[in-house]
C-alpha cells in the first residue's frame, strides 16, 4: 500500500507547476468570468438604487430549489474531479461512469430550473415585469445556457473516455472540459447567494 502511494504521486504531480488542460480553455474561462462579473456588478449596483423592490421580489424566489441546485452543481463538479483523478492514476474504467454521474447532476440542475421557470412564467412573470425579474431571468438563463454547453462537453468527454481516449499520459482534453464544468459551478456559487439570499 505504501509502495503504491509513493509510485502514484509522481504520476499525478509532475514535479513542476502545471496548468491542467489546454491554455486556450483558460483564456475562454477568463472571458466568461469577466462577462459574468459585469453582470453581477450590474445587478448589485442596480439593486442599490431599487433596494425595496429587489428585496420584495426576491422573496418570491424559491431558495430551497436554488440551494438544491447548488448541491447538484457542486456534486456534479466533484464527480468530474473523480473522473480526472481516475485518469491520472490510469484507472481508465472509472472515468466514464464518473462523467455520466456528473452529467446526471447537470441534468438534475436543468430539471429543477425548468420547474422554477414554469412556476414563474405560469404566474405571468416575464423579463418586462420589473427590473428585478429582468435580472433574475436574464442572469439565471445566461447561466442555464452555460450548464447546457457544459453538458454537451461532458457528452463528448464521455464518448471519448469510453473509447479509452484518456489515461495517465493523456488527460489534456478531459482536464480542459472539466475546467469549463467547474467554471459553471463557480459562477453559480456567486449567483445563488447574490440573487436568492442576500438582502
Amino acid at each position: 500500500m505504501h509502495a503504491m502511494t509513493t509510485v502514484a504521486l509522481p504520476a499525478t504531480n509532475h514535479g513542476s507547476k502545471r496548468l491542467p488542460g489546454d491554455l486556450a480553455i483558460w483564456f475562454f474561462i477568463l472571458a466568461e468570468l469577466l462577462a459574468f462579473a459585469v453582470f453581477f456588478a450590474a445587478y448589485a449596483f442596480t439593486r442599490a438604487k431599487n433596494v425595496e423592490m429587489f428585496n420584495l421580489y426576491q422573496q418570491t424566489l424559491d431558495r430551497d430549489l436554488g440551494a438544491l441546485n447548488t448541491v447538484l452543481l457542486i456534486t456534479g463538479s466533484w464527480f468530474i474531479v473523480r473522473a480526472v483523478q481516475a485518469a491520472h492514476r490510469n484507472d481508465i474504467k472509472a472515468i466514464p461512469p464518473n462523467i455520466l454521474l456528473g452529467w446526471l447532476c447537470g441534468g438534475g440542475f436543468l430539471v429543477v430550473k425548468v420547474i422554477e421557470y414554469a412556476d414563474k412564467f405560469g404566474a405571468g412573470i416575464s423579463m418586462s415585469t420589473n427590473t428585478f425579474y429582468m435580472f433574475y431571468i436574464s442572469l439565471t438563463f445566461f447561466h442555464f445556457m452555460h450548464v447546457i454547453l457544459g453538458m454537451v462537453i461532458l457528452t463528448v468527454l464521455w464518448f471519448q473516455a469510453r473509447n479509452g481516449a484518456y489515461g495517465a499520459h493523456n488527460a489534456h482534453g478531459l482536464e480542459s472540459g472539466a475546467a469549463y464544468w467547474h467554471m459553471v459551478d463557480l459562477l453559480w456559487i456567486v449567483l445563488f447567494p447574490l440573487v436568492y439570499v442576500m438582502r
Binding site: N13, P20, I74, I80, V81, H182, D185, L186
Partner: peptide
C-alpha cells in the same frame, strides 16, 4: 472550487 476542483493549487 478553483484550487481543489480546477486543480490550480499546483498551477
Amino acid at each position: 472550487v478553483i484550487l481543489d476542483f480546477m486543480e490550480l493549487r499546483e498551477a
